[in-house]
């Protein structure tokens, strides 16, 4: 009985406390990040657009072994045309990644036995055409050199 008669007062105290808690946030600094101007810092693990690693002599590390194709969860995302060079080693004549189908799981990077493919920190990939999201070997090479220049990726080897 006693408790019930006190209920209105407890309610009013609870309401006042609630309002006070909300009000005190006025004095805190906003946590918003104004996106296109400022961006969140990304670390080296970030899984963004792909790039093919080029060594100092300008050659690809990729040997067109096809592991990335075998670990990729979506089918027909990575396509490799392989060819033999003079010394009898395989190299990719063309290497395409279809970002329309890619789910950015990072398996190709993780399980590549040669460390030949990496993921850069580029994540603004929107485009008007679907075809622009099909990365061929030249784009992938360019991505790597770009990311080295921007220092968004550590040079491997």
């Amino acid at each position: 009985m006693m408790k019930k008669s006190l209920k209105p007062f407890r309610d009013i105290i609870a309401l006042a406390l609630g309002h006070l808690t909300v009000f005190k946030h006025v004095f805190k600094r906003p946590v918003t990040l104004e996106y296109p101007e400022k961006k969140l810092p990304l670390n080296d693990n970030f899984r963004g657009e792909h790039a093919l690693v080029v060594d100092n002599e300008g050659k690809l590390l990729c040997t067109a072994c096809g592991t990335c194709q075998r670990v990729c969860p979506s089918f027909e995302t990575i396509e490799i045309e392989k060819e033999k060079n003079e010394s009898g080693k395989f190299y990719p004549k063309n290497y395409t990644i279809d970002l329309n189908k890619c789910i950015f799981c990072g398996n190709c990077v993780q399980y590549c036995p040669f460390g030949a493919i990496i993921m850069t920190k580029e994540y603004e990939l929107a485009d008007e055409k679907k075809s622009a999201l099909k990365l061929d070997i030249n784009t992938l090479k360019k991505n790597y050199s770009d990311s080295i220049i921007k220092k968004t990726v550590k040079s491997k080897r």
């Binding site: 946030h25 946590v31 969140l40 990304l42 670390n43 693990n45 970030f46 899984r47 789910i103 950015f104 799981c105 990072g106 398996n107 993921m119």
Partner: peptide
């Protein structure tokens, strides 16, 4: 907004650890 603010901290930590915010793999 408060909960999203705090969740954002966790997601940023996850991003640092795994490379993505929701689909960790």
């Amino acid at each position: 907004f408060y909960t999203f603010r705090d969740r954002e901290v966790i997601l940023s930590l996850f991003e640092e650890l795994t490379g993505q915010r929701l689909m960790y793999n």
